[in-house]
């Protein structure tokens, strides 16, 4: 089986969720070609061999520096054909998922997003995907000769396999019409740990009482190298930016550790956090529904417990 893995970059650095797609490809026992579009860190391209790539394609055309979905999907559909690939793998993201869907249409390929585990190939090719916003899973058989799959975070564990792969310059003709959607401006939190990719998330709810109290959560997040998140009312009221809103209608996170402070645990919030490995809830109300979904709970006032917790974490280092 020939597998093409698209690796997404952020300021030239390859994203960790994309490396999970490399690990997934490795688990499928095929021949893996990695592809990176636009500006990319040369060192990062070199390391892809270590994650199991037999070959790395780099389309370095500066026209690909901006992640335009239409453009990227045309290039990847081209690469699928050039490489005679059977499967295209991508990490779920605001870029990867729509690009994948478009490639699937271009190639007439079977498609599945939000895939959580390696495929079962004992009879046919069946993937497990997350549905009902994490409340259930579906087993979906992909019967097309070609397949396009996007992965949910943690679908495969990062693994260095120790190989080496040549980095090949890849050129494709670009289609002018694909550029008719223009990115005018990008505003992005820089230096911070991005919420969808974070291994630890510290999240605050209406119990934090106001944006001026976020400092104690930021201190805790800093001590843990965590990203900060929030509940929907918090972003609705403008206490925090919208991209930090976690839940059914916001970001779905899947960290190792999710710490919820002053969040009641409404079912719509839980839908965004139920893929977390471990959940800690801090709430002054012992009857808050979130405790039922937690691994560890502390009943107490956030304004007392959080600074103490930050201290304890710093002291334990």
């Amino acid at each position: 089986m020939n597998i093409l893995v698209f690796l997404e970059t952020s300021e030239g650095k390859i994203k960790k969720t994309s490396l999970e797609a490399m690990a997934y490809a490795h688990g499928m026992n095929g021949v893996t070609t990695a592809i990176v579009l636009g500006k990319a860190d040369a060192g990062d391209l070199q390391t892809l061999g270590k994650y199991g790539a037999a070959k790395v394609l780099h389309a370095a055309d500066t026209k690909l520096d901006e992640p335009i979905i239409q453009v990227y999907s045309s290039v990847l559909a081209h690469a699928m054909q050039d490489e005679k690939a059977d499967v295209l793998l991508l990490a779920n993201s605001s870029l990867g998922t729509p690009v994948a869907a478009k490639v699937a249409i271009k190639l007439g390929a079977s498609f599945a997003s939000n895939v959580t585990e390696l495929p079962d190939t004992s009879s046919g090719f069946t993937v497990k995907r997350s549905i009902y916003t994490g409340k259930a899973f579906a087993f979906v058989e992909l019967t097309g000769a070609k397949k396009v799959i996007t992965l949910k975070k943690n679908a495969a564990e990062l693994k260095e396999t120790g190989g080496n792969a040549p980095v090949v310059n890849y050129t494709v003709p670009l289609n002018e019409a694909d550029f008719n959607t223009k990115i005018l401006k990008t505003e992005k939190a820089t230096g911070d740990i991005l919420l969808p990719e974070a291994e630890i998330v510290v999240s605050g709810g209406r119990g934090m009482k106001g944006p001026e109290h976020w400092g104690i959560l930021e201190d805790l997040a800093k001590a843990l190298h965590a990203a900060t998140g929030c509940s929907k009312p918090v972003s609705d009221m403008g206490w925090r930016p919208h991209h930090e809103h976690v839940g059914q209608t916001g970001v779905k996170v899947a960290p190792q550790l999710y710490i919820a402070v002053g969040i009641s645990g409404a079912i719509q919030h839980l839908a965004g956090v139920n893929s977390s490995k471990c959940i800690v809830v801090i709430n002054k109300d012992a009857d808050a529904p979130f405790f039922k979904a937690a691994d560890y709970g502390i009943v107490g006032d956030a304004f007392e417990v959080v600074p103490k917790l930050t201290q304890a974490i710093l002291a334990s280092k």
Partner: peptide, 27 residues
């Protein structure tokens, strides 16, 4: 070209362990 074969619910979560607010070190 894609067929839903069956569904599954996630494994149930084990019970929460409560820790005293005076003992965050234990957490």
């Amino acid at each position: 070209i894609s067929i839903n074969k069956k569904f599954e619910l996630p494994a149930p979560k084990s019970a929460v362990k409560m820790i005293s607010a005076d003992n965050v070190v234990e957490l």
